[in-house]
């Protein structure tokens, strides 16, 4: 069986970087899936926002990959995606067909906070000082990202009084 948990105590810097990359990869893929879901359900605004998030997570991933390659070259990766579940990826249950742009930002905010919690929890278990430093940095990053999202949120006007579910057609039988 593939290990589905991570032993933080024995994590090396290389593993930790790879893990961080995979966290971003997972988030990126999830946003891509959610963007598709929104587009399929004709929620273009939120779809667009999720596409934006795909890009952002991609940038984060790229930065980490660059660092990893500089430090460890093409040394094979030892950690696997199967060890992670929804670290920075928003929950599927967090979105609905009628998710509003404001709610979408809240989705992203919850995802960033979730990631922050993950790295905070990990930090407590990590032994390697280099890994500790990396995770502390990632924690801070997530705080910063959350801050950015919060800023966006504060700029958004409140959701309109008439909601999509007030006017939409009934679901369709197949």
């Amino acid at each position: 069986m593939v290990p589905r948990t991570i032993d933080f105590a024995t994590l090396s810097l290389q593993d930790a970087l790879d893990l961080a990359i995979l966290v971003e990869e997972e988030a990126k893929e999830r946003y891509d899936e959610l963007a598709h879901q929104m587009e399929l359900h004709h929620n273009q605004d939120v779809g667009g926002f999720f596409r934006f998030m795909v890009k952002i997570e991609g940038v984060h991933e790229g930065r980490l990959e660059h660092r990893r390659t500089e430090l460890f070259g093409a040394a094979p990766r030892r950690v696997r995606r199967e060890m992670l579940f929804d670290v920075e990826a928003p929950d599927y249950d967090d979105v609905r067909a009628n998710t509003t742009p404001r709610q979408a930002l809240e989705v992203a905010l919850r995802a960033e906070k979730k990631a922050h919690e993950f790295f905070t929890r990990a930090l407590a278990a990590v032994k390697d000082p280099a890994v500790q430093a990396l995770f502390a940095e990632l924690c801070e990053d997530e705080v910063e990202h959350a801050g950015l999202v919060e800023q966006q949120l504060s700029r958004l006007p409140p959701d309109p009084v008439i909601k999509a579910e007030d006017v939409e057609d009934d679901p369709v039988a197949h």
Binding site: Y92, V95, R96, A97
Partner: peptide
């Protein structure tokens, strides 16, 4: 599937089980 459907998570779990 409708956004928010439980089956999305099931699908992820199946991918991972098959990888395992």
């Amino acid at each position: 599937w409708c956004p928010g459907c439980g089956d999305f998570g099931v699908l992820q779990a199946i991918y991972r089980a098959l990888a395992g």
